[in-house]
Design a protein around this nucleic acid. Structure first.
Length: 945
RNA sequence: GGGCGAAUAGCUCAGUUGGGAGAGCACCUGCCUUACAAGCAGGGGGUCGGGGGUUCGAACCCCUCUUCGCCCA
């Protein structure tokens, strides 16, 4: 083996071997355990969030596989409607100078498929590098034929059950992409804008309480006034009580609109009057519905002013009564141009009261980057009220449990205030809505046109055209757990692996995905989609910022695995940017954070880092220093193995269960292994990957390496040791290491597999791969509390001696003599058991006992319980150094004694605290007082010399 | 404005019915000791965001304020 751990040498070959050997596929034996990957975007590449999430899933699935479950981890990608369409459109424009309209719908979709075949697999290749033990033979894509069948089936059944309807509703409209988009795709940005205060003249000669012939409304979007259909005030606002039910004359358009009263209006804000534009604002839309106001749409799909407004009644039906004319000078004027012009015109008319600066949130499309307009359009909706009820109950009753539990509140709060879900998108790429229309606009929903004719008994000559829209990608994602297992067919996979065991996901998509999966899955399978939802935090950069391409702080997980030169990293981060003006800043930032580029850390170190960061918090700040620490941990494990192999290969390790004699150290490390196994099992149970990885780290480094390997040396290097004793130690060395490898495998699959190939056989294990070995389970009868306390005592003695060496500057090479005083029977017993170990590990010339009252030569002193450890100072140290050291100790003890004495002299504590707590404190105080007086005596005697 | 979350060592974070403040990294000192300098040994460092309350006892429970983050209006 190399002297240092070199991850790049071992990773690739193992993954290929595992995959080729079908180790990832379900075993077909045992209880089923399944995880469905949250499908990443087919256009995407692996980012830190994926890598984090996939590490957790892989850790879970490998653990369950080793526990003997019939495990399925199924992966796939979603078709990402907008993202994919845009990507291929850009490519088409760049390469052929064409738009999708030049090609037509079918040819364009063919182009997308071509692109998908060539480039769609990036992320799955990257997943392999992460070591993800996915059953690739069952990889799914939301646009697969079989999956489309499930999507259609769900749509048709929901429609037939009246849970899907089509209607004219207000949606988030992207004026550049010409489609409705979901709330998830809208990014609200803080911006400083203005609040324009307009005077609206009162009709019919009415006057306000103050005698004015107008009222003032304030708006952040003046252009929408062309579509106003009311002015609202708070019903309790006495300033306007006489005006409720009266009318204003809407300037520029001359429309007569009512003054209504509604609680929605905040009397304290502005003038207390609000203009109501139901067709262009979500709040106004609700107000309009409450008051049966007409809705007047003034914008076209580009966000320009229409030549004629579209007027609807509050139920969405066409209103032919109201005047639909718009001022001619605004026709086809862009919304922002119109805004300017309207403000000017109000000013000229003397109707502009004032302009205030105003901070507001402006919605932007996250793909297009343009301001989103609420727009009245014909869209398909899912009526979610009936679906939500069982979905809420499933969580209330515990059929689905969130981990951590607090996220259930987040889920409930959203589910109890649910809006109907707009599922149609005006795109070409996606699942086309299975609905047909005749010339008079009647809707027929069926799988095919032929089926529609049959189902609705339509004549062959009735012309039908299919709906042009496609479904929201989340609509298909909501079927992911059962749609990918073959539903609506009753497949064996569906029978075995549904419901899935756990969903691993970020809290940011609880609403958009998790909740919808629960609703749809319950509706169509009468099963929950998953029994648990493990919700993890979001990965952020070292400054706590969200990682995003425009901020230039993204890290590619593969660069952390393979390493990357600084210049390449800078180029990667600043090349091909949406906002090139940020490049300089990003370059500087990158050079500051990664002055040397990034070293190759390997997959296992990256995975271990993710796991150790997976606590219950919402933010995960990724810290390169921690990853370096865990790379070092891999190296530690590597080198511990080298030591074990050097001392066991081609030697008698008791593989055939020959008789052995186990030393105290052997019994101790076996005992601690059981405790560690129990701890790890508990942490797995509770999804505490941070505590889990920490428990492993602690055991491997601080116990196995720091103590057990050292304690094994005196045995293995002892020429007089018996065969049983040598065998016992060798067997323990390899067996414990082999157990460590199995314990660690779900976290660090590569290094453990590589090492296990050598260590496994020495521990008597057979099998081609560590992956399929049984996971270690604690055996409580092997917990040896006496061995534990004896070794703790030994550590105490070692620590006392090392402390004296360290502080007295006695080099590690220099052997010293030790005197022991005030030993009790237990100390004596332990001394006999460990003397040879102490002599070798602490590098001692001799250990001698002194009678309890005997005088000692001038010595440095340490305490283990009541036992004094004296290191004679002759020729070694100066008096002052030892006195300083003792003073420090005595001061520390005195502080603690003062605190405890105070506590125990408190009447309240002694009478009210539990008796065992009081007894413990008393004992502690007595021990410390004893220790303090011993050290003080020692101080006095040194001073006297 | 409403809701949620966070604030513990220089940094990143643990801290499980309330009972002696921890880890890793960084720092200081000494060591190339035959597994490992990506290491070993020893050491220093915290008013647990501020204030108030409950309690014999609070990092932990309650109230309040401050700062930061996210979601919603």
């Amino acid at each position: 083996m190399d002297k240092t751990y070199q991850p790049q040498d071992i990773e690739r070959t193992w993954y290929e071997k595992w995959e080729k050997s079908s180790y990832f596929a379900p075993s077909g034996q045992g209880e089923a355990y399944s995880i469905m990957i949250p499908p990443p975007n087919v256009t995407g590449s692996l980012h830190m969030g994926h890598a984090f999430q996939d590490t957790i899933m892989d850790c879970l699935i490998r653990h369950q596989r080793m526990l003997g479950k019939n495990t399925l981890w199924q992966a796939g990608t979603d078709h990402a409607g907008i993202a994919t369409q845009m990507l291929v459109e850009r490519k088409l424009a760049a390469e052929e100078g064409k738009t999708r309209h030049d090609l037509g719908r079918e040819a364009f979709i063919d182009k997308i498929w071509e692109w998908k075949e060539e480039s769609g697999g990036t992320i799955t290749r990257q997943l392999r590098r992460m070591g993800a033990s996915i059953d690739w033979t069952r990889e799914r894509f939301t646009m697969d034929e079989g999956f489309y069948k499930a999507v259609q089936e769900v749509f048709i059944r929901l429609y037939d059950d009246k849970l899907i309807y089509r209607g004219k509703r207000l949606v988030n409209w992207d004026c550049k992409l010409h489609t409705a988009i979901s709330d998830l795709e809208v990014e609200n940005k803080d911006q400083s804008g203005h609040l324009w205060h307009f005077r609206y003249p009162l009709a019919d000669g009415m006057k306000t309480a103050e005698g004015k012939d107008y009222i003032v409304v304030a708006t952040t979007r003046p252009e929408t006034m062309l579509g106003d259909t009311a002015v609202a005030v708070n019903p309790t606002d006495t300033r306007y009580s006489s005006l409720q039910g009266q009318f204003v004359e809407l300037p520029l358009v001359g429309r007569r609109i009512p003054i209504i009263a509604d609680d929605y209006v905040d009397a304290e804000f502005g003038s207390g009057c609000v203009k109501i534009t139901p067709a262009h604002d979500f709040n106004d839309y609700e107000v309009g519905k409450r008051h049966q106001l007409p809705m007047i749409n003034i914008l076209d799909p580009n966000g320009a002013i229409l030549t004629r407004a579209e007027v609807y009644n509050s139920d969405g039906s066409v209103n032919g009564d109201l005047d639909d004319r718009l001022p001619e000078s605004y026709h086809l004027l862009d919304r922002f141009e119109a805004r300017k012009r309207i403000v000017e015109e109000f000013d000229q008319l003397g109707l502009l009261e004032k302009i205030d600066d105003h901070a507001l949130k402006v919605p932007y499309g996250d793909r297009s980057g343009v301001v989103i307009e609420p727009l009245l359009t014909d869209q398909w909706f899912v009526a979610v009220a009936d679906l939500a009820k069982p979905a809420i109950e499933a969580v209330e009753q515990g059929d689905i449990q969130f981990v951590p539990k607090q996220y259930e509140n987040m889920y409930f709060s959203w589910m109890r205030d649910l809006q109907d879900w707009c599922i149609s998108r005006q795109l070409w790429w996606g699942h086309r809505i299975p609905a047909w229309y005749d010339d008079s606009g009647n809707v027929y929903v069926a799988r095919t046109e032929a089926e529609a004719r049959e189902k609705y008994q339509l004549g062959h000559d009735l012309p039908l055209t299919q709906d042009n829209d496609v479904l929201d990608t989340w609509f298909s994602s909501a079927l992911w757990t059962f749609g990918t297992l073959g539903w609506p067919e009753k497949t064996p996979e569906l029978e075995t692996f549904h419901p899935s065991s756990v969903l691993v996901t970020g809290f940011d998509i609880i609403f958009f995905w998790v909740a919808r999966m629960i609703m749809f899955t319950l509706k169509f399978t009468d099963q929950v989609p998953f029994k648990k939802v493990y919700v993890h935090g979001l990965v952020r950069d070292q400054e706590g910022q969200k990682m995003s391409k425009s901020k230039g702080n993204v890290l590619d997980p593969l660069d952390l695995i393979d390493g990357i030169e600084l210049e390449t990293l800078v180029e990667k981060r600043t090349g091909n940017m949406m906002q090139p003006q940020l490049a300089k800043k990003i370059e500087a930032q990158t050079r500051k954070h990664f002055p040397e580029g990034i070293a190759p850390y390997g997959t296992d170190a990256l995975r271990f880092t993710f796991l150790s960061l997976a606590s219950t918090g919402r933010d995960i700040k990724f810290d390169m220093n921690r990853m370096e620490g865990y790379r070092n941990f891999c190296n530690k494990l590597w080198n511990a193995t080298r030591y074990v192999l050097m001392n066991t290969e081609n030697q008698d390790c008791g593989t055939q269960d020959e008789p052995v004699e186990l030393s105290l150290a052997d019994r101790w490390i076996i005992s601690r292994l059981q405790e560690t196994e129990a701890q790890i099992a508990k942490h797995f149970e509770e999804y505490r990957f941070d505590l889990l990885s920490n428990a492993l780290y602690e055991f491997v480094w601080n116990e196995y390496c720091d103590w057990y390997l050292e304690l094994s040396k005196p045995v293995l290097w002892d020429e007089h040791a018996s065969a049983e004793r040598l065998r016992g130690t060798r067997r323990t060395l390899v067996r414990v290491l082999e157990a460590i490898l199995r314990l660690a495998h779900p976290m660090m699959p590569y290094i453990t597999e590589e090492i296990w190939q050598k260590v496994g056989p020495l521990a008597g294990k057979t099998g081609d791969t560590l992956m399929l070995q049984p996971y270690p389970i604690a055996e409580p009868h092997k917990i040896d509390s006496q061995a534990n306390s004896d070794i703790e005592w030994l550590k105490g003695v070692m620590l006392a001696i090392r402390n004296i060496r360290g502080e007295m500057n006695i080099g590690p090479g220099k052997a010293i003599s030790v005197l022991l005083r005030n030993t009790d029977a237990e100390d004596e017993r332990r001394l006999i058991a460990t003397e040879s170990l102490l002599v070798k590990l602490a590098k001692l010339d001799s250990i001698e006992r002194l009678a309890t009252d005997a005088d000692a030569p001038m010595s440095a002193t340490g305490l283990v319980g009541a036992m004094e450890i004296l290191v004679p100072m002759a020729g070694l140290i100066d008096k002052d150094a030892e006195l300083a050291r003792l003073n420090k100790e005595v001061d520390k003890l005195n502080k603690e004694i003062e605190r405890l004495a105070g506590k125990l002299s408190n009447e309240g504590f002694v009478s009210k605290a539990p008796a065992e707590v009081v007894a413990k404190e008393k004992e502690k105080l007595a021990d410390m007082q004893a220790a303090c007086s011993r050290l003080s005596e020692q101080k006095a005697s040194i001073e006297a010399m």
